[in-house]
């Protein structure tokens, strides 16, 4: 299992929970995600409803993949009868291991779902070694 991506969610480590007394400036939403491995890439799919394509920010620093996006408040002039959806900032951090080629990350946003394709580094792909005949 050399190609495994560590998906330990480090967002918990970063976000120090404040007590109920302190008003947090803006809520963090941890988008639900799924990760799977295809033939030569790792696929990461995050659900971030309400985000425009331009509203998503993806950064890779060292081996940390950070995905953020700001979800605008649904501001309508009227009486709120039910509020279950949450406004706030989408935020999720993933730790990538060395098998991911960080230069080959591609992202597609469709219907509120962000799909990232993380290409595997050459070393991580199975390589066939030819035997020379002398």
């Amino acid at each position: 299992m050399s190609n495994e991506v560590q998906t330990r969610d480090t967002s918990r480590d970063v976000d120090t929970r404040t007590s109920g007394e302190v008003e947090r400036p803006r809520r963090r939403i941890y988008p639900a995600y799924e990760v799977w491995e295809g033939d030569d890439a790792i696929h990461l799919r995050l659900e971030m409803p309400g985000l425009e394509r331009d509203g998503v920010d993806i950064t890779v620093e060292n081996n940390q993949l950070t995905i953020t996006g700001s979800r605008p408040d649904w501001s309508v002039d009227g009486t709120v009868l039910i509020r279950e959806r949450r406004a706030g900032d989408y935020y999720r951090v993933f730790t990538l291991d060395k098998t991911v080629d960080t230069d080959s990350i591609q992202a597609v946003m469709k219907d509120g779902v962000l799909e990232l394709t993380l290409g595997l580094a050459k070393e991580a792909k199975p390589r066939r070694i030819q035997i020379k005949t002398s």
């Binding site: 309400g50 649904w74 009868l81 509120g112």
Partner: peptide, 18 residues
């Protein structure tokens, strides 16, 4: 979902990504 009532209408917003 969220439901907001305005003077002219009832507005419903529902998160169903994908």
């Amino acid at each position: 979902l969220d439901v907001v009532e305005t003077d002219d209408a009832l507005l419903v917003a529902c998160d169903i990504p994908g």
